[in-house]
Amino acid sequence: MSTAGGSNPEYVNARVRARSAALFDEEEYRKLVRMGPAEIARFMEESEYEEEINALGSRFSGVDLIEFALNRNLAKQFNDILKWADGRLYDLIARYLRKFDAWNVKTIVRGIYSEADKESVDADLIRAGEFDDRFLDRLLDATTIEEVVERLDGTMFDAGLEQAYEDYEDSGVLVPIENALDRAYYENLLDGLVVDEATEQYREYLEAEIDFRNARNALRLARSGADIDPADYYIEGGSLFSATELVTLAQNPDELVAKIRDSKYGDELSNALDELESASSLIGFERALESALLEYADGLGYVFPLSVSPVVSYILAKEQEVDNIRAIARGREAGLSEDEIEQELVIQ
């Protein structure tokens, strides 16, 4: 509900445990991989996603229906968790879910920039963050990017957005605004986080998220060969690189890979790093990072059952479920083989 009041992990964990049990298991994924998009939608209609499929069935069809239903269900589930949580637990959960606020603001800004109609922008929002419907509707009503920036005054995105807006006005591209929004999200992940035994693992997870984000961005910059200062894209809070280290390493991808190999993530990412050294694509490496994060998340649920960890573990598992179902449906639509789709899935 809010950060006020005492933390209530017992109650939220009990509710979340029931939801976790409803997540698709490996057997269900195996069935889904063999289905076409229409069959997947039908399968979803008989599962947790029934309400969303029925509500959106008249507006969308095919894989779009599946994707919008997944996003809406995700938003509903996460909103419920935020509604149940109180006190410190709320704060810990909201830290992570604010990424959907960043997503929604970016979607609204892109909609204004590309002069898209309000309805289609609204359909693309994932209302799973901390911003309530009224605030998001106010942002949707904005007709200029400047208005959006003004309406974000007082939120965590406020800092840096004004400067980013000026840069946007100079350059005419949305990059500064999008980066400012994402940076605000990442830098608030660990900002003011009180670490104790119960949240130690969560902090480690968030740190890993920032480290992996820095690593993949540095590799993307290194591979692109563009004349961009990597320091502009460095996110504070990770333990793997400092800003100056990242600047040096981004110019030498081999050293960057070696640094990751020697780090605490080295063992988990060893295979992906081998693949990265031999292949030109970063996609496999990103997939490995996602798998590693999910493994972290999986471990979260067992260590401190009466902390934020099981909730975060559920949130990540739910996100992965949505990603997997969408990957299967889109993969089937694009004519990918079962093997190709299975290779892309990240299953716990």
Binding site: A102, W103, K106, V173, L174, V175, I177, E178, N179, L181, D182, R183, Y185, Y186, R213, R216, N217, L219, R220, L221, S224, A226, I228, Y233, I235, S281, L282, I283, F285, E286
Partner: peptide, 13 residues
């Protein structure tokens, strides 16, 4: 990467 419009921090390879 910085001319494509989308932000680098929130996108993927």
């Amino acid at each position: 990467l910085d001319q494509r419009g989308y932000g680098l921090l929130g996108s993927s390879a």
